[in-house]
């Protein structure tokens, strides 16, 4: 069986690479997109098995990505990994189709893996 592919949309390259490094140890392929547009382009090329989406990103933020993906009616599961934590943000993401909402600073990689593996 081919490796699962996860697309991480994260503007902080250092952080994105740390996630990539730690998650790939668990046997998945990680692709990184530096902003919303890159993420949409990557999905356009090949729909991944999971999208981990940051919210605050330059050029095109996570909310806009959600809005852009919504009409496509993809089966792609999307989880939000961000450092925003207000109810309003969570609510907006949920309404736009996100499956889960995690606060980056509150999770270890282990925690994250435990929570996302069910989507793979």
């Amino acid at each position: 069986m081919a490796k699962k592919r996860i697309l991480i949309a994260e503007d902080e390259e250092f952080i994105a690479n740390l996630y990539k490094m730690n998650l790939e140890k668990r046997g998945v392929d990680i692709e990184i997109a530096g902003n919303g547009q890159q993420a949409l382009a990557a999905i356009e090329r090949q729909v991944p098995d999971l999208l981990i989406l940051d919210l605050l990103m330059p050029d095109m933020d996570g909310f806009q990505v959600l809005q852009a993906l919504k009409p496509k009616n993809l089966t792609l599961p999307i989880v939000i990994l961000t450092n925003l934590s207000q109810d309003i943000d969570k609510q907006k993401c949920q309404e736009a189709g996100a499956k889960d909402f995690f606060v980056k600073s509150d999770l270890t990689v282990e925690d994250l893996w435990n929570k996302i593996s069910k989507y793979l």
Partner: peptide
């Protein structure tokens, strides 16, 4: 958000 981002980087690094 601005506080959490460096914190995230630190935690991930240490982990």
């Amino acid at each position: 958000h601005q506080l959490r981002t460096p914190l995230t980087a630190m935690r991930l690094t240490l982990e």
